[in-house]
């Protein structure tokens, strides 16, 4: 089966700044593929290139076997797009929003009306069918946008920060729906800076920074490869640091905590208890967040 997206040496420059600086990736049918990265990493720009909204500066890009430069309408007819900004039509009710949007895809009106009702149920908004957009909460709006992205039964769903600013219930509902869509054979591409979201949803993901891809892989592989299995954290004090130096355990200091990456947290914990008398100690599995902070750095990006 040919890949759903192929990007090679993909570049997008604005004046002298490169928003996307020569990235390579391939997305296969049926997978959830994530783009992770700090603000300004180039995630949204990449989404704009994929969704045929921005023309690329150079490189090759194929979406569903077609080139966005030459066949944007044919590609967009088969995409479902969830933008970062809420851009529902404020002049319409929930149902009319979906029906009007379906019209842009040449879907006949009666068919669109039926599909709209199904989708409202899918995102649990059937009670809000005839309610105006400005009466919806933020979570409801995001759910309606997800429903809107599905009106044309897309082959590829592209979501830019789908759960930004949502409460836990609304996030879980969106996650669950995305998993369901994947189970039905859909391909999903999403950006996020919630690491738990990426770890939970994505089959494979890339971490981007400064317009480049730093790493690509499955969440579990990335954690294993770039951080390790487990992490022990103890408080940062002179006694602990001198003690650790004596035992020869490798450690890193981040603010008020000392971190030790290990394959066996138990052994490290025992050694620490026996020799260093820590006041506070936590052992935990390594997460994508550790990979992210290691690769993208701990300093704040603006």
């Amino acid at each position: 089966m040919p890949p759903v997206i192929i990007a090679e040496e993909l570049k997008k420059t604005y004046g002298t700044t490169s928003a996307v600086d020569g990235i390579h990736f391939t997305v296969h049918k049926g997978e959830i593929f994530g783009f992770l990265g700090p603000n300004g990493a180039g995630k949204t720009t990449t989404m704009k290139l994929l969704t045929c909204v921005s023309p690329r500066t150079s490189g090759t890009l194929q979406v569903l076997g077609m080139d966005p430069d030459t066949e944007p309408a044919a590609i967009k007819a088969r995409l479902g797009i969830v933008p970062q900004e809420t851009n529902l039509d404020p002049d319409f009710t929930c149902h009319a929003n979906l029906v009007t949007y379906a019209g842009y895809f040449d879907i006949p009106r009666d068919q669109a009306a039926k599909k709209a009702d199904e989708l409202l149920e899918f995102v649990q908004l059937q009670d809000k069918r005839d309610v105006a957009i400005d009466k919806l909460s933020g979570g409801m709006k995001r759910r309606l946008i997800l429903a809107r992205a599905l009106v044309n039964s897309p082959d590829l769903l592209i979501l830019d920060e789908p759960t930004i600013g949502l409460d836990p219930q609304a996030r879980h509902l969106i996650w669950e729906r995305l998993k369901l869509l994947q189970a039905q054979g859909n391909t999903v591409v999403l950006t996020t800076h919630y690491l738990d979201e990426a770890a939970r949803l994505c089959d494979r993901l890339v971490i981007m920074d400064n317009g480049r891809i730093l790493v690509l892989g499955s969440p579990a592989d990335l954690v294993k490869e770039h951080v390790g299995d487990e992490i022990v954290e103890v408080e940062h004090s002179i006694e602990i640091v001198t003690c650790l130096e004596k035992t020869g355990i490798r450690f890193e200091i981040f603010g008020d905590t000392v971190q030790i990456v290990t394959t066996s947290a138990r052994d490290v914990a025992r050694t620490l208890f026996e020799h260093c008398q820590p006041k506070k100690m936590i052992t935990r599995p390594a997460t994508l967040e550790d990979v992210f902070l290691k690769l993208a750095g701990r300093t704040l990006k603006e």
Partner: peptide, 14 residues
């Protein structure tokens, strides 16, 4: 303000 054009060009409309 309504970002309607952005929403429209995410469909086959140019």
């Amino acid at each position: 303000y309504q970002k309607s054009f952005d929403a429209m060009i995410a469909t086959p409309l140019s």
